[in-house]
């Protein structure tokens, strides 16, 4: 095959140097690969706890129920020893969730029992924080059809119980 030279006289054929660009591009690629970290998404449990208002329930409000007391006892190594809700011993956080839903029912929205109810956690000092998050998860909602159904959102804490001599 013969290629006809169509270049006109006096016109230069500029060849682009690709090598430096590819060098830089690979440097960038290596940098991003090395610094890449898979971070799982994080979410929050929002709590409003002003110092001078230990309870959100105003005593003058007759619709406000007393807070549900949930006791989380810990072994000396910080593992969960037991869950108690209003004197009733519960074996798992699933049982706690069901017990809470028994109390508040399926009524949601403004003026509902779920909206006005508050949960107060009474935890041992050395209890591992992951159990508290599990307990908060159990009382604050559940997932149905990929949607979060809120149960109780008002959460507060009693001062932690220190182990004797701790």
């Amino acid at each position: 095959m013969r290629v006809r030279n169509v270049q006109r006289h006096g016109e230069e054929n500029i060849e682009l140097q690709m090598t430096p660009m590819i060098d830089i591009v690979f440097q960038l690629l290596v940098f991003f690969i090395m610094t890449f970290k898979i971070v799982s998404p994080e979410g929050d449990f929002n709590i409003r706890m002003p110092k001078d208002a230990p309870s959100e329930a105003r005593p003058s409000d007759p619709l406000m129920l007393p807070p549900i007391q949930v006791r989380l006892a810990a072994n000396s190594d910080g593992t969960l020893a037991g869950i108690t809700m209003g004197g009733r011993t519960l074996k798992t956080f699933g049982a706690l969730h069901l017990a809470i839903r028994e109390i508040v029912g399926d009524d949601r929205g403004p003026g509902s029992i779920a909206e006005s109810t508050e949960v107060e956690f009474d935890c041992d000092y050395q209890l591992k924080f992951e159990y508290v998050i599990q307990a908060i998860t159990a009382v604050s909602g559940y997932v149905r059809d990929n949607r979060i159904i809120k149960v109780i959102e008002k959460i507060k804490f009693k001062p932690p119980r220190r182990a004797p001599g701790g």
């Binding site: 799982s40 998404p41 994080e42 979410g43 929050d44 449990f45 929002n46 709590i47 409003r48 706890m49 002003p50 110092k51 699933g94 969730h97 069901l98 508290v132 998050i133 908060i136 998860t137 159990a138 559940y142 997932v143 149905r144």
Partner: peptide, 23 residues
């Protein structure tokens, strides 16, 4: 609280699949 902050967010990692979905 002593310093004057009132709003708190306890952060947790998002977990897939239903621990609670089963219950």
């Amino acid at each position: 609280q002593d310093v004057g902050f009132e709003k708190f967010a306890l952060r947790a990692k998002q977990e897939e699949a239903g621990l609670q979905g089963g219950r």
